[in-house]
Design a protein around this nucleic acid. Structure first.
Length: 220
DNA sequence: GCGACAG
DNA sequence: ATCTTGTCGC
């Protein structure tokens, strides 16, 4: 499926002319059971203020298999996206885009599936080789796989471990890095990712608490 | 054959 | 992804 969809990915161009709504997507999992919470948080790209949140609870129907990550998270993330009142102009995904064995990571899959430009931001490397970028914010080095530049190792804060940025869909790598930097004025990860992480974790925690309370009443 | 392996 | 304990730096 990834090899079939890969040709549909657009990896060139500056992307959306004016981005008014940027979305951060993330999924949290329960330690036991297969429960999960998927969140999409939409921010104003200029003020970084939260405009809207959409969180859905669900169950993992696919195991974590490196290279097949999208099959685990995409279904729930699409459900969360459908819960938004207005579709976002750009998706910032927690994971890789083109920096993938078949050049079709989660960010590419979400971008092609929704038709919305997307960026992949990973916290650790998955594939490729690279030189350590200079220590200052904004510095970057190529992430190379089989002779192709599949992403950038980007420093979002001075003297802080870099993030792995790769194109998802609908824009080039330079534009992707520009967006990630703008979304990370204070912390290592983009504000979109941070907000989505907080949202899905909170939702999972409240669901867990509600479930325990319900079970307590049952046995009572 | 062995080690690596987004989240 | 999730858990855990302390440590370092602003």
């Amino acid at each position: 499926m990834q090899d079939r969809l890969r040709p549909l990915v657009v990896t060139t161009g500056p992307g959306p002319a004016d981005v008014r709504r940027v979305a951060g997507l993330d999924v949290a999992y329960a330690e036991d059971s297969d429960r999960l919470a998927a969140a999409v948080v939409v921010l104003d790209p200029d003020t970084l203020q939260v405009l809207e949140r959409s969180v859905v609870l669900g169950h993992a129907r696919f195991p974590y298999v490196p290279g097949l990550f999208a099959f685990r998270e995409l279904p729930s993330l699409v459900e969360a996206l459908d819960g938004l009142s207005v579709p976002p102009d750009l998706l910032v995904c927690d994971g890789q885009g083109l920096a993938h064995p078949r050049r079709f990571g989660l960010a590419c899959h979400l971008g092609v599936h929704t038709g919305i430009p997307s960026i992949g931001v990973g916290k650790t490397a998955f594939v490729g080789t690279y030189d350590t970028p200079p220590p200052h914010r904004g510095a970057a080095s190529d992430l190379v796989l089989d002779g192709d530049v599949v992403g950038a190792v980007l420093r979002t804060q001075d003297n802080v471990k870099p993030v792995f940025v790769s194109v998802g869909h609908g824009l080039d790598l330079a534009a992707a890095c520009r967006h990630v930097l703008a979304l990370s004025p204070h912390f290592r990860l983009p504000e979109t990712t941070r907000q989505a992480d907080t949202a899905c974790r909170a939702a999972l925690a409240q669901a867990t608490a509600a479930g325990l309370a319900r079970d307590a009443v049952r046995s009572d």
